[in-house]
Amino acid sequence: MLRFIVKRIGLSILTLTIVSLIVFLMTSIMPGDIAKQILGRDASPEAFEIWNKEKGFDKPLVVQYSRWMGGVLTGDLGTSFQYEMPVGEILGPAASKSAQLAIVALILIAPISILGGIVAAMNRGKKVDRALTVGGLSAAVIPEFVWAVVLILVFGVAIRAFPVSAFPDEENPNIVSSVYHLILPSIALLFVLFGYISRITRAGVIEALDSDYMRTAVLKGLSRKTAVFRHVLRNALLPTIAVIATQVPYLAGGLIAIERVFNYPGFGNILLDAVIARDFPLLQTAVFLTGVVIIVFQLIADILFAVLNPRIRQKVTE
């Protein structure tokens, strides 16, 4: 088991290294002179040279990369072009804001979507199932910003049930008010994520329902309900939760549009500003850290899944 965990962590580190290289190379090799973009076309050649030297862009790529990575590993995330501030000080508070939104969203999304998947599976082929699957997946392919705009239109402007900004106006908002402001953006995320999570859950439950061991349980004389509780959900939800953990961070990309529409000072908003301002130190690090979060999530999910599943537990132990 330990060997499996060590190997799995090793692989994650390898992947992260590749991620860092991709991010670094994309911002270093791509056409478009950074200095020109930051200083403007009319600046003198000397100004470019001084600026490049100051930022270390005259050094070979290997040196630039190791300086960046070395900094990230030691906690020095670099200095933003746009704010002239340490990147860590900008990203830290923004990340915590995004985490708040993500947590509220997940508390809303996970139970509803898993329940939706179970209901669909138990009613396979019936109208409820069709409605949940086709409806859920159709909702999932509509971009977050469309949902956000429509939700604001309906709930914020037309019936005024929820605030249109995700960020409370008060000086010292209490937790209730904060959560209240996060509900509308969470619902927008729900629409996009419901389809994925409920589909994965449904597939897992159906596989377990169709399994020979479920048949055994029913033919032992368990009522269908008891058999489902004891034999199906346990087997179906374990992989489902693992898959959710690995899938959800991908959809974190959606936070950018949501945060923009709801005017929420989170990670996504900062990232988008960095794109517009071509603030590469901030952008590089922000993108790399997104990769870190996602890969760590997948790592934890994989290890947990292996620990909880006897079959894999044995395979990796051998």
Partner: peptide, 14 residues
């Protein structure tokens, strides 16, 4: 009671 083909899958793996 019933006994099936494929006994391996007839038992709950977890």
């Amino acid at each position: 009671s019933m006994v099936y083909q494929n006994p391996a899958t007839a038992l709950n793996p977890t």
